[in-house]
């Protein structure tokens, strides 16, 4: 019964994109639809897939993220149960590992990295770039969990990040700037986002003195900001190195 509602919701969520493509195809471009049967089957797959995926998120990934946050902040790990920042080192480590592993395996990042290698004529290596971005995301999410534990102001962290990005932009080769800015949005995938969100909310619930509403969100913001710095930084270093060699 629940699944039926999920499917109905999914139909509603898919309607705008299906409608946009159909309307523009038929009215503006005025081409008939190339393969109606394939199109309808594809849309059916999208709807079923979305309903199942969301159901799975609710059953597994959200609880898992909160559980990890609870366990890592439980009495077994934080005996004093206070806000001693260094006590939460396992939380930071978990966040870093999660960010690193998911980013390294992210398919859209692989595509972006190959493109960057192509633009730069080989000065930027695809693998090096992926490592740099993964380290960037790992550091970003880790810093984000530190902010939740310490209760710092989100906007101050992000403001500092923007400042650094701007500074880097002035020194970066112009061909890499668009790619770098885009990479921020690319690294956070459909599977990572829910788990990281749940981790943040769980942390804000478990750490004494934190408020879910004020402190729980913000991890994804860190995860989207740090890849920009990593790509800009990596490009600057890679080009400097190739210049020194050449």
């Amino acid at each position: 019964m629940r699944l039926l509602w999920e499917i109905l919701d999914a139909v509603r969520d898919i309607l705008p994109i299906a409608g946009t493509i159909l309307l523009f195809q038929l009215w503006v471009i005025r081409h008939p639809l190339p393969n109606l049967q394939r199109l309808l089957r594809g849309l059916l797959f999208v709807v079923i897939g979305m309903a199942l995926f969301l159901q799975g998120l609710e059953m597994a990934l959200f609880p898992l993220g909160e559980l990890m946050a609870e366990q890592l902040t439980g009495p077994a790990f934080i005996p004093r149960q206070g806000v001693e920042m260094l006590d939460y080192v396992w939380v930071y480590l978990f966040a870093a590992c999660l960010g690193f592993a998911t980013t390294l395996a992210e398919p859209s990042l692989i595509a972006v990295a190959l493109k960057a290698q192509e633009i730069s004529g080989g000065a930027i290596h695809a693998w090096g770039l992926r490592l740099a971005v993964s380290v960037g995301v790992a550091f970003g999410i880790s810093l984000g969990t530190f902010r939740i534990v310490s209760g710092g102001e989100l906007f101050l962290f992000i403001l500092a990040g923007y400042g650094l990005v701007l500074l880097q932009t002035f020194f970066a080769p112009s061909m890499i700037i668009g790619l770098a800015y885009d990479s921020g949005g690319v690294t956070t995938s459909t599977v990572t986002v829910p788990l990281v969100t749940a981790l943040g909310l769980g942390l804000a619930r478990s750490v004494p003195g934190r408020d879910v509403l004020l402190d729980g969100f913000g991890l994804i913001a860190f995860a989207s900001l740090f890849p920009i710095m990593a790509v800009l930084g990596y490009a600057q270093i890679a080009i400097l190195v190739s210049r020194l060699r050449g």
Binding site: I17, A18, I21, Q25, L33, P34, R38, L39, L40, R41, G42, L43, L44, F45, V46, V47, I48, G49, M50, A51, L52, F53, L54, Q55, G56, L57, E58, M59, A60, L61, P63, L64, T190, V191
Partner: peptide
């Protein structure tokens, strides 16, 4: 947890196949 993971893998597979068949080419 296991059931949810299976839902996620199957759901994501259907979702991406559907996108690639219907929405992306068009």
């Amino acid at each position: 947890l296991v059931g949810g993971m299976i839902c996620i893998v199957v759901g994501l597979t259907f979702f991406v196949i559907g996108l690639e068949q219907a929405l992306f080419p068009l």
